[in-house]
Computed example of a mutant assay.
Amino acid sequence: MMLEEFIEIANLLDVYSELLSGKQKEYMIEHFENDLSLSEIAKNNNVSRQAVYDNIKRGINLLNDYESKLGFYKKKKKLIQELKNLKDNYSIEKLDKLIDEII
């Protein structure tokens, strides 16, 4: 997995983790946020490496599906960029426009 993909999944996990099953969420946080290997996660949870892999794979598919349907992460990225632009080029008109877009 490329670094960009890894970071993207970690960001999607931040947005949608509460929609995953308990084990998917746990394994994915351990892998993507705590940087544990599949073998380490399996050992810590007394399950097979394959079980961890399957849960993470299903979790990734779910995160991508949620994002394609809901788009919250894309909206969050856009809002952050617009706030950075506003910070660099502040005007009350630009702030009002951004507020109108959000509401």
Rank of each mutant, 00 (worst) to 15 (best):
Ile102Glu: 05
Leu86Arg: 07
Asp65Asn: 12
Ser48Leu: 11
Ile29Pro: 02
Ser39Val: 10
Leu98Arg: 04
Gln24Cys: 05
Glu101His: 09
Leu63Trp: 00
Glu4Ile: 15
Lys57Asp: 14
Leu36Arg: 06
Ile80Met: 07
Gln24Lys: 06
Ala51Lys: 12
Val47Pro: 02
Asn61Ala: 13
Leu63Asn: 03
Asn89Gly: 06
Leu79Lys: 10
Leu19Tyr: 04
Glu4Tyr: 14
Leu63Met: 07
Glu40Leu: 08
Ser48His: 12
Gln81Glu: 03
Ser37Gln: 10
Lys69Ser: 09
Lys74Pro: 02
Asp65Phe: 07
Asn55His: 15
Glu33Gly: 04
Ala10Trp: 01
Leu13Pro: 07
Lys84Asp: 11
Ile99Asp: 03
Ser17Glu: 14
Asn11Leu: 09
Phe72Pro: 00
Gln24Thr: 04
Ile92Asp: 09
Lys25Leu: 05
Ile80Gly: 01
Val47His: 03
Leu95Pro: 02
Asn34Pro: 03
Gln81Met: 00
Ser37Cys: 09
Tyr27Lys: 11
Lys75Cys: 08
Asn46Gln: 14
Ile9Tyr: 00
Asn89Tyr: 10
Leu83Asp: 05
Ile92Phe: 08
Val15Phe: 00
Ser21Thr: 14
Tyr90Trp: 05
Leu20Trp: 05
Glu4Phe: 13
Leu12Ala: 05
Tyr53Ile: 01
Arg58His: 12
Ile29Ser: 09
Arg58Ser: 13
Leu62Ala: 12
Leu3Asp: 15
Leu79Arg: 10
Val52Thr: 02
Lys76Trp: 04
Asp65Gly: 09
Leu38Val: 10
Ser91Cys: 09
Leu38Tyr: 15
Gly71Pro: 08
Leu83Lys: 09
Lys84Asn: 14
Lys94Gly: 00
Glu40Ser: 13
His31Cys: 07
Phe6Leu: 09
Ile56Ser: 11
Lys57Ile: 06
Ser17Gln: 13
Leu20Tyr: 01
Ile103Cys: 08
Ile29Gln: 15
Glu8His: 13
Lys76Cys: 04
Asn89Phe: 11
Asn61Val: 06
Arg58Gln: 12
Ile9Glu: 00
Arg49Pro: 01
Asn85Pro: 02
Arg49Thr: 11
Ser17Leu: 03
Asn34Met: 15
Val47Tyr: 01
Leu79Asp: 04
Val15Gly: 02
Ser91Leu: 08
Val52Ala: 06
Tyr73Leu: 14
Glu67Lys: 04
Ser39His: 11
Glu18Ile: 12
Ile7Glu: 11
Lys23Ile: 04
Leu13Val: 06
Ser48Met: 07
Gln81Lys: 06
Glu18Leu: 13
Glu40Trp: 03
Phe32Thr: 07
Lys78Arg: 14
Leu13Gln: 03
Arg49Tyr: 05
Tyr53Met: 08
Asp65His: 08
Asp35Pro: 00
Leu38Ser: 11
Met2Asp: 11
Met28Pro: 04
Ser37Phe: 09
Asn64Met: 02
Tyr90Asn: 05
Asn44Glu: 10
Gly71Leu: 00
Gly22Pro: 01
Leu98Gln: 03
Ile60Arg: 03
Lys78Met: 14
Lys76His: 13
Asn85Thr: 07
Asn55Tyr: 12
Glu4Cys: 10
Ser48Arg: 12
Lys43Phe: 15
Phe6Ile: 00
Phe32Asn: 01
Arg58Trp: 10
Gln81Gly: 01
Asp65Trp: 02
Asp96Arg: 12
Asp88Ser: 13
Arg58Ile: 08
Gly59Lys: 00
Phe72Tyr: 15
Lys97Gln: 15
Glu26Trp: 01
Glu33Thr: 06
